[in-house]
Amino acid sequence: MSVIQIEEKDFFEKTKKGKVLVDCYADWCGPCRMLSPIIDELSDEVNDCLFYKLNVDNAEKITDKYKIMSIPTVLFFNDGELKMTIVGLRSKDDFKELLEKI
């Protein structure tokens, strides 16, 4: 598996089915750049989840809807329903544990 970049217009279509993780980031955010390879590795190890990344600079509707005011923010969905929001840098193992709970 790999992490796929999504656009705002495709967001709801892509997140409506199954377990989905979305890494909300921006190029100007240091911790986001450190999180990105962690999510990449996670996507190689976890098979029952789809992994996306969303550039918040081009996604004002989504950041408004989910009240994203701090990045990196990771959103967890199950069948389109937001299950959890994690703000800030975490380890790969932390994310693995969180995914198991979804």
Partner: peptide
Amino acid sequence: LGKGISYCATCDGHF
């Protein structure tokens, strides 16, 4: 945190 408290101005200032 992330709802009006931030520890990283360069991360969150744009919001």
